[in-house]
Amino acid sequence: MSETIRLAFVFARVGVMTFGGGYAMLPLLSRELVEKRAWLTEPEFADMTAVGQCTPGIIGVNMATYAGYKRAGVRGGVAATLGLVFPSAVIIALVAALLRGFADVPAVRHAFTGIRVAVCALVVKTAVSLLKSSVFGSSGGLRRVVPAVVFAAALALALFTNLHPAVLALASGAFGIAYSRLRAGK
């Protein structure tokens, strides 16, 4: 029980500190779950982001449910999700009730222009650390070349086509299965 409550609190804290959507949550989650508590390893964290992106729903909620389940089963998944959304619901209800013109206040607008730049830098940092563990983390030779090629191909498709992220995720998963079968068959 105490573990469930702890999960809810950890995710509530992540929810309060996330500005600018699910991707802005990644560096916070990586700090809380990987660096500080070691609840997930770097590869498990990469799995979580992959699952979060290729399933329906809000990415942040998907990741919270996944991490919570890994830690404490179904109860953990539910607790992490409720923890994550609780602060949002409270804050939005307050904002909606009290400050309808909140986003029009010039100081608020300036602050958010600044925050958006910080979100950019934080997403870059997350991409760099994931890149280190999932592409350059493996030992040399083909083990390194294949993930690098998948990364480059997926990046090009994500940037230059309108393919849905879920399509890319499914295609790369299928490629991974085919490739590992091919290698095992040799």
Binding site: A46, T113, V123, L130, G173
Partner: peptide, 30 residues
């Protein structure tokens, strides 16, 4: 083995998707 295989493909692709988001965000805010 198939689950391991699927994730070995998914991990670099997921990393690429996040990188693409980073690039789009930079384009939009800078």
């Amino acid at each position: 083995r198939d689950v391991e295989g699927a994730f070995s493909g998914l991990r670099p692709a997921s990393c690429a998707l996040i990188t693409a988001v980073g690039i789009r965000l930079i384009r939009a805010s800078l």
